[in-house]
Design a protein around this nucleic acid. Structure first.
Length: 207
DNA sequence: CGAATGATCGGCT
DNA sequence: GCCGATCATTCGA
């Protein structure tokens, strides 16, 4: 029996379904990073779905294809990492069949391996949930940067990859609500595409 | 509550 | 090409 941190990555085909289902299913899956010789990992406890076809909050809205969004148009299971506010990086998992530009934002993880290196990567000393309870904090803690744009998250040899099976949580353990910070997205702003592990201390503070 | 801080993109020249 | 608005946030006042 494998311990959780030795589980294999999900299969790419597990990531091609509807992006909301994949976002929900990714709760409980672990993100592992091997960066500068340091192994850190966190269990996903909060996600959001972004759908290219008709979602005004998605960078790939209406199949918009630019250098930045190129990775959306390839195979599922690759990393979309970008800079927001000139300050913070955001980590996403590309989903959907080729040509369907969807992605899941990982908004929070619960530390599993390497709390100390996670702390060391932060500019200021922190402890407790603040270590990983926001999308930019996930990247800081795990050392994920735009250098990892396009990384194959289904390859255990990749410096950043996923481990574990999707859809391990029961419905009563998943809290569903509208997404954060997308008020500008008009009618899409209220879509219930944010998923959290109910009661988990490491979910992000936003209502 | 608002500043930080820079890549991206659209709209123009 | 260049200019300016925008932004899936965080932290400290």
């Amino acid at each position: 029996m494998l311990s959780p941190d030795e589980s294999p990555p999900p299969a790419r085909c597990d990531l091609v379904g509807g992006v909301e289902a994949v976002a929900r299913g990714l709760l409980g899956v672990e993100v592992h990073s091997y960066i500068d010789g340091v192994h850190t990992a966190g269990r996903i406890v909060e996600t959001e779905a972004y759908r290219g076809a008709d979602d005004k909050a998605a960078h790939s809205y209406k199949h918009k294809r630019t250098k930045r969004t190129e990775v959306f148009f390839g195979d599922a299971g690759h990393a979309y990492v970008y800079l927001i506010y000139g300050v913070h990086e955001m980590f996403n998992v590309v989903t959907g069949p080729v040509g369907q530009p969807d992605a899941v934002l990982v908004r929070a993880v619960e530390p599993v391996i390497g709390r100390e290196p996670m702390r060391a990567r932060r500019k200021r000393p922190v402890d407790g949930p603040r270590l990983t309870n926001g999308p930019a904090l996930v990247c800081q803690a795990l050392g994920i940067t735009r250098e990892h744009y396009g990384a194959d998250l289904t390859d255990p040899r990749s410096p950043v990859h996923l481990r574990g099976r999707l859809h391990t949580l029961t419905a009563e353990n998943v809290l569903v609500s509208p997404r954060v910070g997308v008020a500008y997205a008009e009618e899409c702003a209220g879509w219930p595409w944010r998923f959290r592990v109910s009661g988990n201390l490491y979910t992000s503070p936003a209502k």
